[in-house]
């Protein structure tokens, strides 16, 4: 499913998991359960040995997944098997994409039903070749903006992204936090343009999710809290959390159309 179609039913709950954690075999069924519980988009992380944008929770998950045999070939098999009625999005570091070849990677995404790519260490200025590969395979290339992104650059990133704009809620790395910062609100408010925007990094509770949507975001991205629950084997609690978060964001803004 295309990401733009999903955003017609904003606000959306976007759920990140690390593919292959705890095992590659468990990943397809886990994706199905997340979608059934209410995840509107699944971000499927490809583990990397050197995840510089990630905090301890996702670092540990990546190490477990690699040790359990996850690699790029296995990743695409698992992604293809995870047949869900919501968009699947790749998230991973540029070297993993580069090593496979940009065209081949984008084609493999399309074949596995992945309709978007998030590459956190690839700024738009360096993304020309991958952007070309994504266009020819019909895959969205999603860029990130951060609280310290200056206005002119924010405009450029908004214009470059496709699918949605990923707003990094705070500086620093991924990981659950209990508060939201003023700078998150300011970032949401100062994004120009009309593309959907989703906020991630440090969001772990239904209250935070609701706050982000109330501030004007079209989607909320949760990662580390989900990865943590998976690590503890508490899948039912994760499903419960997804239902609660979904309820919280829908309560803020009902089943309306895309915010403008």
């Amino acid at each position: 499913m295309k990401i733009s179609e999903a955003f017609e039913k904003a606000p959306l709950l976007i759920v990140y998991i690390c593919a292959g954690d705890p095992t590659p075999a468990a990943t397809p069924q886990l994706v199905r359960r997340l979608a059934a519980a209410g995840a509107d988009i699944i971000e499927l992380g490809l583990p990397h040995s050197d995840p510089i944008a990630d905090g301890p929770t996702i670092q540990a998950a990546a190490q477990r997944a690699i040790a359990a045999g996850m690699n790029t070939d296995v990743y695409f098999q698992a992604a293809a098997q995870a047949d869900v009625p919501v968009p699947k999005v790749f998230m991973g570091y540029y070297n993993m994409v580069y090593a496979r070849g940009l065209d081949r990677f984008a084609q493999d995404c399309a074949r596995a039903g992945i309709t978007g790519m998030i590459v956190p260490d690839l700024p738009p200025e360096e993304a020309g070749p991958l952007h070309k590969a994504c266009v020819s395979s019909g895959v969205d290339l999603i860029f990130l903006a951060a609280p310290n992104t200056p206005a002119e650059r924010l405009k450029m990133i908004e214009e470059s992204t496709s699918g949605f704009l990923y707003l990094v809620a705070r500086t620093g790395v991924t990981g659950a936090r209990s508060d939201l910062l003023q700078s998150t609100h300011e970032l949401i408010a100062r994004v120009p343009g009309n593309k959907p925007k989703a906020v991630g990094f440090g969001i772990s509770t239904p209250a935070q999710a609701a706050e982000v949507i109330a501030a004007g975001a079209d989607g909320v991205i949760v990662g580390s809290v989900c990865v943590d629950l998976i690590a503890r084997g508490e899948i039912e609690r994760l499903e419960q959390l997804i239902r609660e978060m979904k309820g919280a964001i829908k309560a803020v803004r009902g089943k309306g159309t895309i915010a403008s």
Binding site: A53, P123, E126, L144, A146
Partner: peptide, 19 residues
């Protein structure tokens, strides 16, 4: 944006570090 040495070099970092 970033100095290149032939095809090598560049600035491949998370957005928070770009600025």
């Amino acid at each position: 944006f970033a100095v290149k040495f032939g095809r090598y070099g560049g600035l491949f970092v998370p957005e928070t570090l770009v600025t």
